[in-house]
Design a protein around this nucleic acid. Structure first.
Length: 221
DNA sequence: ATAACGATTAGCT
DNA sequence: GCTAATCGTTATA
């Protein structure tokens, strides 16, 4: 057992909300060869969102299995990568039992290794905290793309791996509505490490003109 | 076949 | 605050 042992699949074969909490504080490390400059970047996860399967209208797996979301239906611990807005990639960790769809979107992290490479990949970042402050920024600094869809994060030989980290105490975890979705805007399944400078900004989703909740932004914790 | 739209970001007013 | 950029996926406007 070293400090860099990968997370066990069993720890992720649980409900998406429990897995989301467990993922905060964990390390995501990527050794990428192709695409952007090759090298290794690692980060500590500080912001995630849970997406369940059939009962979560905001989830990609809500309307059943398709070619795109197939990985979400497989065993936990694999990476679900999708292409969005014609230019970005987002990465999720698959959860729940094999055959039950669900995943946790990785929204932000604090870069802990490979700062120089991270800066080269994200020249627009003005501060270290901005390197992976957003789901597409996170995949950009790690060099994650289509070719990593389905990668086994629990396999020490995988180019992208999840490493055990000091768990974040529940008292240091905040919760609020998920970012950028047009449905299920009241479900507080976005979780972040309270006070981390790398946590991304909240933005309400597209349509679903919901009445102003008089002063409340839905955030607790 | 075709059109609408998106789990976003950067840059500008 | 607002919007262009840009294309795969999904539903059929």
């Amino acid at each position: 057992m070293t400090a860099s042992s990968t997370i066990a699949r069993e720890a992720l074969s649980v409900d998406v909300v429990d897995a989301a909490h467990a993922l905060l504080g964990a390390t995501l490390i990527a050794d990428t060869a192709a695409g952007s400059p090759a090298g290794t970047v690692a980060l500590r996860l500080v912001e995630v969102e849970a997406y369940r399967g059939a009962d979560d209208p905001a989830s990609h797996s809500y309307r059943g299995r398709t070619a795109r979301n197939a990985v979400m239906f497989g065993p936990a611990g694999h990476l679900y990568v999708y292409f969005i807005y014609g230019m970005h990639y987002c990465a999720n960790v698959v959860c729940l039992a094999d055959g039950v769809p669900g995943a946790v979107l990785l929204r932000a992290g604090e870069v802990t290794e490979g700062h120089d490479l991270a800066r080269r990949r994200r020249p627009a970042a003005r501060r270290v905290a901005e390197l992976a402050s957003g789901p597409a920024r996170l995949t950009e600094v790690l060099g994650i793309g289509r070719e990593h869809n389905g990668a086994d994060l629990t396999d020490p030989r995988s180019p992208v791996r999840l490493l055990q980290g000091p768990p974040v105490p529940p008292a240091e975890i905040s919760a609020g509505p998920r970012v950028g979705i047009a449905v299920a805007q009241d479900t507080p399944w976005r979780f972040w490490v309270t006070g981390s400078p790398a946590v991304s900004a909240y933005r309400r989703g597209g349509k679903a003109t919901r009445r102003a909740e008089t002063g409340s932004n839905g955030i607790r914790g």
